[in-house]
């Protein structure tokens, strides 16, 4: 059977546990800075810090126990040289999604400049090119996808998008249509 999840590396998991434990400790440490006291006459159960305090204490406990488990496991069976190499590659892999998130941010910016249709078309075609889907068939599929999105969301469900400066160069009638549908 095909299982698509990847196997995590013990050292990579240890680093992740360290980060999570540190973040939860910092958040818990900020409890009385990030929340106010409330009224002194009210009961203890109404204190604004109570709910985040309990949640963060639980978070810290779970992360700390995970960290302990990871450390004790590595002490009983130290990491091999292959695991170290694999860990470095996997930790570097954490940066991979940033590339696509950067494209996503650029896409959002482009909507405000050139409009939804043009920005979506550019985004989809660039992504298809970037991931290696570069034949003319994929180009057509990309265009069809954008057409379907416009048809369903802009024309069908009437989802509003900001009017970009680019549409100002068109005559009023065309501009109205572009703003309304594209």
């Amino acid at each position: 059977m095909v299982v698509e999840e990847s196997e995590a590396n013990r050292l990579e998991s240890l680093l992740l546990n360290l980060i999570f434990a540190a973040v939860s400790a910092v958040l818990l440490g900020l409890l009385f800075v990030a929340t106010k006291q409330g009224s002194a006459n009210a009961g203890w159960w109404t204190r604004p810090a109570l709910a985040p305090g309990v949640a963060l204490a639980l978070l810290l406990l779970a992360n700390f126990l995970s960290l302990l488990r990871a450390v004790s496991d590595l002490r009983s069976a130290p990491a091999t040289a292959e695991e170290w190499v694999d860990a470095r590659a996997k930790i570097a892999g954490w940066l991979r999604p940033f590339e696509f998130l950067a494209y996503f941010a650029a896409y959002l910016w482009a909507i405000h400049v050139i409009g939804y249709v043009a920005a979506t078309l550019a985004f989809v075609l660039w992504l298809l090119f970037r991931v290696g889907l570069r034949t003319s068939v994929w180009l057509l599929v990309g265009v069809a996808l954008v057409a379907a999105l416009v048809l369903i969301f802009r024309m069908g469900l009437g989802v509003w998008m900001p009017a970009p400066p680019l549409y100002d160069i068109f005559p009023d009638g065309v501009r109205e249509i572009l703003i309304r549908w594209f």
């Binding site: 999570f20 949640a55 978070l59 995970s66």
Partner: peptide
């Protein structure tokens, strides 16, 4: 892990 995820959601 489930407890940590739940606690983070509660926070």
């Amino acid at each position: 892990e489930a407890m940590a995820a739940l606690a983070f959601g509660l926070f």
